[in-house]
Each structure stands twice: as C-alpha cells, then as structure tokens.
Design a protein around this nucleic acid. Structure first.
Length: 705
RNA sequence: AGCGAUAUAGCUUAAUUGGCAAAGCACUGGUCUCAUAAGCCAGAAGUUGAAAGUUCGAUUCUUUCUAUCGCCA
C-alpha cells in the first residue's frame, strides 16, 4: 500500500456575492487549519475549492442588472479568491466551474452515468414558463394563492402561512416573481438521477461506516448532526432527483435531446472538486486520479450544515455510480455563525464580509490572525455560535497579547538579558517539566486530527499559559539578584525555549501570519513541510526541540493591544464596527414610526391654544419618580405645570428652557398639585423625551400656529 | 406541519460507556516586577430549557412540551 493521499475539499462558494465571516468559519478556516497541519506533518495532501458559477440565480441577477452572467461571476470569483488569499486560506487550487476543463469533466461524468443505462431516467413534466423572461421557473420563483389557507403569497413549493407542501400547479393565480406576470405551463423533459437505487448501501455506509462489506470509516467519529440528518433522509426514502434544467447558462447536457438544457447546478458543482483537482495536477505535474481513486485516499469534505445531504448522500451516490471513486472518510460539517446575536444579512447590512474586514482593518496590526483567532475560538462546530466584537477584543487582548505574545516576549527578553540571547545549557535537563509541556503539544495534535479545532486552539493557549505559570513558579528574576550563575535559571530558560519553540510551529495552522514572526524572533528559519513530524517525534522522546547554544534574536512584539492606554487607534477601528451596527438598529427602529392619525379639520387644530414660554423654576415632586413641578413664564401670566419628565431631566437642568405649552388644557390635579397646561415633548423609539422648543430668543406668551 | 441537531455559571463552551457538573472570560480579594496595565494565586458564581418516567444513582436513557437553527425547498 502506497502512502496515504489526503484530498480535502471546501464547499464551492456561489459566485454571485462576496463571502462573509460566517462562510469563512464554516468551510474554509477549519479546512485551512487541517490542511496546514497535514502539510506540516509532511502528508501528501491537496486542498481544492473554486467558484460555483452556474445556476438560475446568477442569470436572473444578470438580467435584472442588465449585465452578462459572466460579468457577475468574474467579479465575485476574483473578489472571493483574493480575499481568501489575503486571509491566509491556503487552497492548493481555486478553480471555477465556468472553466472549459470543468465543463468537459462534468459532461464526461454525466455521459458515463447516462451510458450505464440504469442510473438515470427521463421524465416529462408540465412546468411553469415565464414568457416575459423567456425561462422556466423554479418552484421558488412562483407565488400565488394557497389552495389550503388562501394566503396570497404562497411559494410554488410551500405556503409559509399554513406550512403545507405545495407544487406550483396547485397555486391559484400563479405569478412569476421575475416578471410579475402569469406563467404558462409547458411540457419539458428532464433527466433524473435514481437516488432511490442507492438507498441500501448508503444507509449501511452512513450508519455503520461499512462500504461493500468493508469497514470504510468509523461512523461514531462523524458529527451527530451529520449522521442524524442523513439517516432522516434515508428513513423518508430517497427519490429520483432532477439533474437537468431548462436554462441557457450552464453546462450543456451532452446527450441526445439535451439541446437547450443544462446540468442542474447541484449536479455540476461537486464535480468541480474533481475538475479543480485535475487543474491542480496539470499545473503541478501530478496524477489527479491518485487523489480520487484507491484505498489509500482520505477524502474529507468541509462544508456548512446546509450542504450535508448533498455531500453525504447525493455526491457519494454519484461517485459510486460512476465507479472507482473513493467516498469521503468524513464530512465535518459546521453549523452557522451568527453576528452579534443575529443572522448575517446582506440586505440589512448585518455582518461583515471578508473583503470589507480587510479594508476596514487595513491599519490594524496582524489583522488576519486577530480575525482567525476569534473565529477559531468560536467555531460553530456542533451548534450555531456567535461573533461578537466584545469577544474579538477580549480574545485579542487577553489571549493573544496577554498570554501568547507576552510569554514569548518574557522568554526572549530574559534570555537576551541573562545569556545574550543564547539558549543556556543546564547540567540537568528537567525532563519532567519538559514532559508536561510536550503532553499539551501532543494533545493539540490529536485534537486537530479529530476536527476539534476549537479545543485545539484552547490547548495552544494552555501551552503558553503553562509557560507563564512555570516561569512564575521559578521566578528566575528573583534568583538572578543573588545568584546569576544559578543552574535553576539555566534550566528554566532552557525549558521555556522549548515551549516557545513548540509554539512557533504548532501555532502555524491557526495563526499563519504570526508563526513566521515567532520563528524569526527565535531565529529558527521558516517551517518546512514535515517539520512538525520531527518536532512531535522529539517531543514523544522527551528531547529538546531547540538545542542549547542556539542564538535567538532580539524581542519584538507580536500583537498590539486594542485597549492600549496611549494609542486608541485600534480601539477606534473596532468601535466603528459597533457604531455601524447600532446605526443599523436605530435606523430600523426609526423606520417603525407610529402611523399618522386620522385627518382632522383646521377648526380642530385652532381649538388648541399653544404658547411659547420659559421654565423659570422646577422642583421634584416627593414620592413621584417621574414628575417635576415646573413654573412656566407665559409673559402675561405664570403657570404651574406638572410634567412627567423626571426620568430624563433633573430639576436644575430644565430651568431656563424655552418650551411650547398647551395653554388652554383643562387643569388637572397630579399628586396634589394642580397642573395648568401641558408642555409639548417628542418621544423617540426608546421612550426618551425631548423638548419641542421655539427658536432661541423667541419671547414668552406668543401663539404657536 | 414533518424530520434532524442544539439548549449546562452573567458570557463562551467541557463532561469517555449513567457515577462528586469542569474550564476560559467577566466579577471579587491577594500577590509578583522579567514582560504589552501583562503574569501568578485564591474566591464567589449552577433547579444542566420545562415537566414527568426508568434507575441505588440521570447533564447523560425514555416520553411530552418550549425555544433556536437547518433540511425537505
């Protein structure tokens, strides 16, 4: 058996918009950690991804914007590709499904299944067609009146009012969401992939990890939500799935009768993993099939939870139907990331996109790893999680600066101070201490291997925290005062050097921008593929990672605190993000104003006698939380007014304020004080009050009209 | 509506097959001075979403709810 080959895929992003942090933390950042780790171990690994560029959504958007589909995909392919690169997402190849190679690959795949004879079936169906837009309509693009509950905005597949499942032909008065017109029924023929045929082996494969009577993977290692959802699908029974569409944008159906039809985007997209691998192999003089076929292939799909059935049922069935292909060993699907407690929403502007982050944090030092760290710390591995700027600040300052950065700095400063930067050679190496640190390193390794990235990065912090505690326990600076030649200092600094050495390589998968800086400070040279295998072997044998006598460089800071007492620039960058969100919320609230009341006649208005006035005295009314007793000068007379503004204004603040008074309001006793009029106030969405005041200098007692 | 997953300290999360419910942050107190107002020590903090059941024993198993997200779409 040859060496194991790792083929890692990340969900192909749909090229009709920019990706946000939620996407990043779902399928790309975890994969990046895993792949970087495998590379460091010297494994034969290839990681492929690319833009998914077909489908009706892109053509519809193009039509609405009056540009070509190609303009859209070109724009977002480039944008997403470069954002990934700038955040250190280290794909081996980022392909695109509009590429000729992909078209050929997908067509060949389709043809092969077609020629097998019993994988596909043809069905003619009546489908709604939008004559204005010249295209068949997917169920979701048709709305009409629900035949069950009468709701008039029911979709072609479901009524969201009563929840019943519908088919488009059931809708009363159907209309196209594209043109708004009534669609017409047309008969069309499509090819269906007979998924139902594959039900039995899929169940055994998912439930027990057995494939063709052989143990393929350990089913218990798959995430619960992944297995659960697949079994639920299988329990409901699989149905043949349409894999073609009537569209002009996409991959032409390459068999007789396929004119004017394209492959359904969900059929063609996962084949993109294959074509991406092919392109990578061409560019690098490799054999793509070695990574897709054979017993020694370890295929892992990184995806979000919305893609589970496609990667665990549909695509495996396609691969098995084709023959020869390896099936995924695991599909560690992540759940979703929320943003400050709410779902990412492009239309609301809620959340932050990758390229926006890079733009807006341009002046933030080590912005890539600062972001990566918080996202990893908070990955939605088993349930939805939340990105918060408070966490971003805390994790950055407390963990990256205070723990990791600070420990490195302490070690480098002390080593430079005591030994001119040369790692000392103690007579006796404290192997028990080394073993403690090495144990944490081994744990990080096994956590990454089991896709526990959140646990792994916490263990990484535990390693530097262990170093901080150890340094504190020995306190070499105390010993130094009386005995600078002490063996204890040498031992301590030797052990600490090993710990920072570990950190310089173990941090690389998580913090690829920081790790090289640590290496440079330690004068270690950049890491090469396979280095981690050597380090872990040494750790296992309890040997030194950096030899005594090694010369390190001068100290340098890795991270700059956000909450810096002198330099507020980083805090301001983060605070701007918070302000943006508050503005969105305020705007949304503001849009929810009270409706305008019923129309009144002019005579109704003239019944009011509104007068300008000035508050000349104010006192709080005892035992009343909200009430102030005010004296208002109306020029011709003085009024006593009781006003419920004490929650917002102190008595002494309001004296001198110019106000408008309803002067002919019938007097009323409040808390035993007669109130002779009412001061006009405006109330905002938070229930806060503000005076409605005449322009400065307006005298008292004049009529407001 | 159905199915799946999730719900644990103020917050974010742990807890191998049922066996004393952990950790980080935040908070409180103490302490060190090598270090970026960093570090270290200690403390307080819980009706494990609700209710019932099985069990000597339930965060864990069963049932019924509730909430959130996803799938079906």
């Amino acid at each position: 058996m040859s060496e194991k080959k790792y083929l890692i895929t990340s969900a192909l992003p749909y090229a009709n918009g920019p990706l946000h942090l939620g996407h990043l933390s779902g399928a790309y950042l975890p994969a990046d950690i895993y792949v970087r780790y495998l590379r460091l171990l010297g494994k034969d690994v290839v990681w492929v991804c690319g833009s998914d560029e077909h489908g009706a959504a892109i053509t519809i958007r193009a039509k609405k914007e009056g540009i070509s589909p190609k303009e859209i995909i070109d724009k977002y392919h480039e944008l997403n590709k470069s954002s990934f690169e700038r955040l250190g997402i280290s794909f081996d190849h980022y392909h695109r499904t509009s590429a000729q190679l992909h078209h050929e690959t997908a067509q060949e795949f389709f043809t092969k299944l077609y020629e097998k004879g019993d994988e596909f079936e043809e069905q003619s169906i009546d489908q709604y067609y939008d004559e204005g837009f010249d295209q068949f309509l997917a169920d979701r693009y048709i709305v009409g009146t629900c035949p069950r509950c009468g709701h008039d905005e029911a979709y072609g597949d479901q009524c969201e009012n009563c929840g019943s499942d519908l088919s488009p032909t059931e809708l009363i008065n159907p209309r196209s969401t594209l043109s708004g017109k009534s669609p017409v029924l047309r008969t069309t023929k499509h090819w269906y992939f007979k998924l139902n045929k594959h039900e039995d082996w899929l169940r055994q494969w998912i439930d027990e990890g057995q494939l063709d009577g052989v143990q393929h993977h350990d089913a218990k290692e798959w995430k619960k939500h992944v297995v659960g959802q697949c079994l639920s699908w299988l329990d409901n029974g699989l149905q043949p799935r349409a894999i073609t569409r009537d569209l002009s944008w996409g991959i032409p159906v390459p068999v007789e009768g396929g004119a004017g039809k394209v492959l359904y985007v969900w059929f063609d997209a996962p084949i993109g993993y294959i074509s991406s691998t092919k392109q990578w192999a061409l560019d690098n003089g490799k054999d793509w099939e070695a990574y897709w076929k054979g017993d020694d292939v370890e295929l892992i799909h990184f995806i979000g939870k919305d893609n589970i059935v496609f990667h665990c049922i549909v695509f495996p069935a396609m691969l098995k139907a084709y023959g020869d292909f390896a099936l995924p060993k695991n599909v560690p699907a992540n759940q979703f990331l929320n943003f400050e407690g709410q779902k990412f929403s492009k239309s609301r502007g809620w959340g932050i996109e990758q390229h926006k982050y890079l733009e807006e944090f341009a002046d933030f030092p080590n912005k890539e790893d600062a972001l990566r760290y918080t996202l990893i710390r908070n990955l939605p591995e088993n349930k939805d999680s939340d990105f918060r700027w408070d966490d971003f600040e805390d994790h950055h300052d407390k963990e990256l600066v205070g723990n990791l950065g600070n420990f490195l700095n302490r070690v480098v400063v002390l080593t430079n101070k005591y030994y001119e930067g040369v790692i000392p050679s103690p007579t006796n190496i404290p192997t028990d201490k080394l073993a403690e640190a090495y144990q944490i390193a081994q744990r990080i390794s096994s956590e990454v291997e089991t896709f526990g990235f959140k646990a792994a990065i916490l263990s990484l912090m535990e390693l530097s925290s262990w170093g901080n505690t150890y340094l504190q326990d020995v306190s070499p600076w105390k010993i130094w005062k009386t005995d600078p030649e002490s063996e204890k200092i040498k031992e301590c600094m030797f052990v600490c050097a090993q710990v920072v050495g570990l950190l310089s390589i173990l941090s690389e998968p998580f913090l690829p921008f920081t790790a090289p800086k640590i290496r440079r400070i330690l004068n270690l040279g950049s890491t090469e593929n396979g280095d981690l295998a050597v380090v872990l072997a040494k750790a296992k044998a309890n040997e030194a990672i950096i030899e005594a006598g090694h010369q390190m460089n001068k100290p340098e800071l890795l991270f700059a605190q956000i909450n810096d007492r002198k330099d507020h620039s980083r805090k301001e960058i983060v605070d701007r993000q918070r302000a943006k969100l508050e503005a969105i919320l305020a705007q949304e609230k503001a849009n929810e104003r009270e409706p305008i009341k019923d129309t009144i006649q002019f005579d109704d208005f003239t019944k009011l006698d509104l007068r300008t006035g000035t508050i000349t005295a104010a006192e709080k009314i005892p035992k009343a939380k909200k009430l102030l007793k005010l004296t208002v000068d109306l020029g011709i007379e003085e009024r006593t007014v009781v006003s419920g503004i004490a929650a917002f204004f102190k008595a002494e603040e309001v004296v001198g304020t110019q106000v408008v008074l309803v002067a002919n309001l019938a007097p009323r006793k409040l808390r035993g004080v007669e109130s002779q009029g009412m001061i006009l106030m405006a109330e905002n969405e938070k229930g806060e009050l503000g005076f409605v005041s005449p322009q400065e200098g307006m005298g008292n007692g004049f009529v407001v009209k």
